[in-house]
Amino acid sequence: MMRRRFLVRLLAAFALCSTVAHASMGLTELPGLKGDGPVTVFYASDSPAAPVARGPFNPTVAWNGRAIAGNRRLIVLSHGSGGAPWVHTDLAQALVDAGFVLALPEHRGDNYKDTSAPGPDSWKQRPAEVSRAIDAVARDARFAPLLDLNKVGVVGQSAGGHTALSLAGGRWSSARFQRHCEAHIAEDFNACVGTFTLLNGGLFDGMKKSAAIGVLRQRFDDETLVEHHDPRIAAAVAGVPAAADFDPASLARPPIPLGLVTAGRDIWLTPRWHSDAVLRACTPCVRIAHLPNGGHSILLSPLPPAAVLGEVERQLLGDPPGFSRNQLPEVDRQIASFFRLHLLP
């Protein structure tokens, strides 16, 4: 009898995977809660798909298509600094094919429409925005009947990786960020200043470093450890995360499974002080994927066209010479496998 029940569940799982894999990818936008920006949702649909213009991107989706049942699990994606949903369409497709619904909140003051408050100012509010995105999906009549929100996954890239670490139990402070930048401003310059400028070996590098430290001292001196807990979050993936400001002890044994995706040639967030530091601190963490020749944009697929990026962004997000994006679909599949392992019953 037990073997028969197991076979029935296994056949049902195969049937579900087959149905979802052959479905369209639906796309819709939900209004955010408490003044938040929109929440973009990718999901399985039985409506026909067609290209939809979203800025320079044309994802093939079923716009506002009818949602169909998947594996009943939601994943929330926290985008990077200045980010948009459309650069995560390939990962969205892999997760939808695996049966998940994917929701992307627009992080206030740090998105492609509004870049007024990046860094620690955004990091403080992002985890709560993830929680409210879960609430927004739960309130929507299309998705509420299809989802069990007791076990939700979170995945994030760069600043979104910082969000994932926070939701996995990490604690950080603005003062820790400031001290890191004072100590390592030359080696980790763009982690501290973002896309404002680059060090180029020229006469003005010393002035750039001094000015950056002066601004950081004025803005980020709060020693209060910031944390956010949402009991619905049951697994997290941090891709090339901003992490130098975390208390390592808070990440030593996360209360939920935590996986990392890392890049060996990331020049925006130097791995030594970010992703590698998390892996040194976290005994049970797993490295889901490591691309030794990859840069900071390994979770951006499709990559933003160069024409829409500034000069500094092009250098920080550009793929290193010799890097092949043919590796990225497998990274997406590994992320989906991690969530299947830890979120499905």
Rank of each mutant, 00 (worst) to 15 (best):
R5H: 09
F6M: 12
L7N: 12
R9T: 09
L10R: 12
F14E: 08
L16R: 13
T19N: 06
A23E: 03
M25T: 15
G26D: 14
L27S: 06
L27M: 14
G32P: 00
L33H: 11
T40I: 06
A49E: 15
R54W: 01
P59E: 01
V61D: 02
R66A: 14
I68P: 00
A69I: 04
N71G: 03
V76F: 10
S78W: 10
H79G: 02
G80A: 14
S81W: 05
G83S: 07
H88Q: 05
D90L: 08
Q93P: 01
A94V: 08
V96H: 00
V101P: 05
V101H: 05
G109M: 12
A117I: 04
P118D: 10
P118W: 13
P120E: 01
R126Q: 09
E129C: 09
S131V: 04
S131K: 06
R132A: 02
I134Y: 11
R139Q: 13
D140Q: 06
L147P: 00
D148F: 10
L149W: 02
G153L: 07
Q157K: 07
S158N: 15
S158A: 15
A164N: 00
L165R: 02
L165Y: 02
S166V: 09
L167G: 05
S173L: 04
S174Q: 15
R176G: 01
F177N: 12
Q178D: 07
H180S: 11
E182H: 07
A183M: 08
F189M: 00
N190R: 06
G194S: 09
G194L: 11
T195W: 07
L198W: 10
G201F: 00
L203I: 03
F204P: 00
A212E: 08
A212T: 04
V215E: 10
V215N: 06
R217T: 06
R219I: 09
E223T: 15
E223W: 10
T224F: 00
E227Q: 13
D230I: 08
D230P: 11
P231W: 14
P241W: 09
F246I: 11
F246T: 04
P248M: 12
A249Q: 13
G259V: 03
A263F: 06
R265W: 04
I267H: 09
T270G: 01
P271M: 02
C282E: 09
P284Q: 05
C285S: 03
R287P: 02
A289E: 02
P292H: 05
P292N: 12
N293I: 09
P302K: 12
P305F: 03
E311N: 09
L328G: 00
P329N: 14
R333P: 00
Q334F: 04
A336P: 03
F339R: 01
L341M: 11
L341I: 04
H342P: 07
L344G: 00
L344T: 05
L344V: 04
P345W: 09
